[in-house]
Amino acid sequence: MRNVQLRLVPARLAASLVPARPAPPPPASPGEVLAEAEALRVFLGGRPVLDGVDVRVRAGEVLALVGPNGAGKSTLLGALAADVPAAEGVVRVHGRPVSAWSAPELALRRAVLPQSASLSFPFPVEEVVRMGRAPWAGGDEAAEDDAVVADAMSRTEVTGFAGRPFSALSGGERARVALARVLAQRAPLLLLDEPTAALDLRHQELVLRLCRERARAGDAVVVVLHDLALAAAYADRVAVLRAGRVAADGPPAEVFAEELLSEVYDQPVEVLPHPRTGALLVLPRREP
């Protein structure tokens, strides 16, 4: 049997061998590009899902990704989150290719809300929200965990069932808890995939108001939406996707044109001013 020699490492040297906790990003300037895709192509199952997509996400704005089913909205969001690999082109977060960031570094820079949230264990709601604070563990910011978690739960109106198991919640309640986790992460780039899909009217409005609040506070928010009226009301900019390409990109007042939307959705659409406020209304054209 070979002799094995154990060497004791001095505590100071041992501490130096522990990977340093990554530093959070500095505050972004208004209009700064926090994420971008250039000439992005993505294949899933051997099929092109995104084909030559260019998009930029800026601090201080809500960018809505809209388009019919299968247009590539969720895939584009996943690529911006570094969860979906690019076959061609490049995706950057905070000015660097996503491949250049480690997972802990990315977790301090972007927070992701998937379409559905599920957990294998019956964690209490408060613990699920607290998972959003994991990127800050070990730093001075961890002292703020309790306050940040409480604030995120209050804003998403889930404080009332903080102690209930996540698995016992309705679909809409789970969606709001998942959003609270994302808010608790306090990343400057929020990537939200259909956050209003399971919500009632009141909470759809709540979620989009929160998106706008985060953007006004200096964050960049990308949100996948099917409701064009919500996109028109809350987004600063809209990217309309069709068959894996960007058909239009700009402010809702410029992008939401009847001819374009009717063609993209293969459904007659009318765009009207609200009779009281003048705000943009986007409706399917229905025969009397």
Rank of each mutant, 00 (worst) to 15 (best):
V66L: 07
Q115N: 07
R56A: 15
E127M: 13
V125T: 14
V57Q: 05
V125D: 02
V66Y: 01
L106N: 01
A71P: 00
A82N: 08
F123H: 12
V84S: 04
S118V: 14
V66E: 01
E127A: 15
E105A: 13
A87E: 14
A81S: 13
A87I: 09
G70I: 06
G70T: 07
S74K: 01
V84A: 06
Q115V: 02
L65F: 08
P85M: 10
A81N: 04
E88A: 15
A111R: 01
G67W: 00
P104Y: 10
L106S: 03
G67C: 08
R110I: 03
V57I: 15
A86Q: 05
T75N: 04
G72A: 07
V128Y: 01
L77V: 08
Q115C: 05
E88Y: 11
G67P: 03
A107T: 06
S99T: 15
V62H: 01
P122S: 12
A117C: 14
R109D: 04
A79I: 06
S74M: 04
P124W: 08
F121E: 13
E126A: 14
A79F: 04
G70K: 06
V128D: 00
A81Y: 02
F123P: 04
G78Y: 00
S116A: 14
V91G: 02
A59P: 05
R96I: 09
F121N: 13
K73A: 03
P124K: 09
S116K: 14
Q115F: 02
V98Y: 04
A79V: 06
V84F: 05
A100V: 12
S99G: 13
V112Q: 02
A107L: 06
S102H: 12
G95E: 11
V66M: 04
R109A: 05
A117L: 15
P97F: 11
E127S: 15
E105Y: 09
P122D: 14
P85K: 11
V98L: 09
S116G: 13
S74F: 03
G60E: 07
L119T: 08
A82I: 02
L108A: 07
G67L: 05
R92L: 11
K73M: 05
K73L: 05
L77C: 06
P104I: 09
P85N: 10
F121H: 14
G70D: 08
